[in-house]
Nucleic acid binder design. Structure first.
Lengths: 147, 147
DNA sequence: CTTAATAGTTGTATGATACAATCATATAGT
DNA sequence: ACTATATGATTGTATCATACAACTATTAAG
């Protein structure tokens, strides 16, 4: 029944989104904020980039990314280097410390997920991971086309 | 491989949470705000309640719920009635208009999900719905116990 | 009958975000 | 070559859901 599964996804997404919002706010995130984590992750996995490219990739406003990048720079997690061929542009690249922080933060998060899903079967975990990824991809495509 | 599935869920949750945050902000939500939607849903499905109970159920701060409820009241979507046996307490119950609005909003959301998952198989949709629900339940349990 | 607890509201701060204005540089049109 | 326009980035400002803390009113407990 298509209707039922759609309704369920719709509702559970609403629940999840509120919960995510709660968690994001309540947590004392010492070094890395959740938002900056993905920025660091992006640079770490896709190499150095400017704010424009990062903003596109993360689907955020340039100004938002600019501030996040500045914050990471200030903490020494990324290094901002001017681009010779275009003096308006900069590249942000991850530093060793940034890499270390990101890995550490990631580890903590994974442990949280581990605890969270302690009574799940491995099959469920795998399925959920795959479907979640697929969902995010769908959202990305939908967004790029629509808005 | 447990590590891999955990890592994937961890990452995709981060992606999803940022995306949700984006969507929540960018959208012109005319009548119902996403936050209030769940409040209305809760009242609609579980009957009238006071802010304390609602806050517990939704795992939000009482003050937050108080404001949301006041806002819904102002819009005429819920009715606030004093409780005779305890003059500190009130019950919020959904109005006909509130019910209509909620259903309408829900319909729009479901259509969005429908478009979003247009190239998914029904099996995937079903699985995703089930696992998402399970995930939210896990989060709820985890939260209640920990914090 | 005073003190504690409880339901709810309101004040204040925060943090991620978008949009608009601005600055500096680069590219295009004539 | 000179002006107009486009582009990368930053900064100012507003918003919004949220938490925490202070407060009010009422009820329960000692």
């Amino acid at each position: 029944m298509k209707e039922k599964s759609l309704a369920q996804i719709e509702l559970e997404m609403a629940v999840l989104s509120r919960r995510i919002a709660s968690v994001a706010r309540s947590k004392r995130e010492e070094n890395l904020v959740r938002a900056a984590y993905l920025l660091l992750y992006q640079i770490s996995t896709h190499g150095p980039a400017g704010v424009k490219g990062l903003a596109e990739e993360l689907q955020l406003d340039i100004s938002t990314v600019s501030r996040q990048a500045a914050s990471l720079d200030q903490k020494g997690y990324v290094k901002k280097t001017p681009l010779a061929q275009d003096k308006r542009s900069y590249l942000y690249e991850i530093t060793e410390e940034g890499q270390r922080e990101m890995t550490e933060y990631q580890k903590v998060r994974r442990e949280k997920v581990d605890e969270l899903l302690v009574d799940w079967t491995e099959e469920e975990r795998e399925q959920f991971g795959v479907l979640l990824k697929k969902f995010n991809e769908s959202v990305k495509v939908y967004w790029s086309s629509e808005d």
